[in-house]
């Protein structure tokens, strides 16, 4: 019995040791999802590491596309990306969780112009203007605008005089506020979050239009990732809203928590992508 107990104890410590030295979970982030909150993200990483009892690293890339490239190369286990990025590489990953904003997993696309622009009332007023997008794979920051132009029989390729990407929702606000771009499309969730921390910047812009709802950017898991690990991460994320420390972090991330991701939530995005030729 004593020998068995010793063997069991040895196995236990061996497992802990193996666990401790095993490869960390790599969670991919883009500038759009990170939103410049790097100290907060570090606290979140430590939180996840503690809850998972497994090392976690965050990998930052500029665009959703770069994140998905890493995932394709098995260099990411999880990624917080946009739904178009997910749909473009649907076989690479599985939807894991969706953030909840105001209790719902929905986001909007805002069409913003400089506050000094009192004339623009619709997207169609922005013909031959300079327009700023977030990311070519952003539903709220790119697909939605193109979709709306197509709905109005406008060619997104030449409707604007010039377009550019900032790869960060907050930078869209800055680009529009200083007049670099005449208008931009941005995630409503990102604009609202920025309005809380930097109202001086958002006040220099004016929301012209709000789109129909989109699903908030999901966190996906690599399709080839061990199911146990996938579920472990999902469980930790879902349970964040159930402990005080998690709630604190969620509050600072300006979300209420995470819900299991459902692809139906992104069905409209999927259709838009099809309509705009992104799929």
């Amino acid at each position: 019995m004593k020998t068995l107990l010793r063997l069991f104890t040895a196995c236990f410590f061996l497992l802990i040791a193996m666990n401790a030295t095993s490869e960390p979970f790599r969670l991919g982030m883009t500038s759009a999802t990170a939103r410049g909150q790097y100290p907060l993200l570090e606290e979140w990483r430590l939180y996840l590491q503690q809850k998972l009892n497994h090392p976690v690293t965050f990998v930052f890339r500029r665009s959703y596309l770069e994140c998905m490239d890493l995932m394709e190369q098995n260099k990411l286990d999880f990624a917080w990306i946009s739904s178009p990025a997910y749909f473009e590489n649907v076989r690479l990953s599985n939807l894991l969780v969706t953030p909840l904003y105001h209790g719902k997993p929905f986001d909007l696309s805002y069409l913003i112009v400089p506050a000094s622009d009192h004339d623009t009332a619709s997207l169609l007023n922005l013909k031959d203007k300079v327009f700023a997008f977030v990311d070519p794979d952003s539903s709220t920051g790119y697909i939605e605008t193109n979709y709306q132009l197509l709905l109005n029989n406008k060619n997104p390729e030449n409707f604007f005089k010039k377009t550019f990407f900032t790869f960060d929702d907050q930078k869209i606000v800055a680009a529009v506020a200083i007049g670099l771009a005449d208008a931009g499309s941005i995630s409503g969730f990102a604009w609202d979050t920025l309005a809380q921390s930097r109202p001086d910047i958002t006040s220099q812009t004016r929301i012209v239009l709000q789109s129909a709802v989109h699903g908030l950017s999901p966190i996906v898991a690599r399709a080839t990732l061990d199911r146990h690990d996938t579920l472990a991460m999902q469980r930790v994320l879902l349970n964040m809203s159930k402990d005080a420390e998690g709630i604190k972090l969620l509050t600072r991330l300006n979300i209420d928590g995470f819900a299991p991701a459902d692809w139906k939530l992104y069905h409209n995005d999927y259709l838009m992508m099809q309509r705009t030729g992104h799929l």
Binding site: V130, K161, K162, I178, G179, L180, A181
Partner: peptide
């Protein structure tokens, strides 16, 4: 192409 004062020197 770009300027630090886009209102004075707008793109294009």
């Amino acid at each position: 192409l770009v300027s630090t004062h886009p209102r004075q020197a707008p793109i294009l």
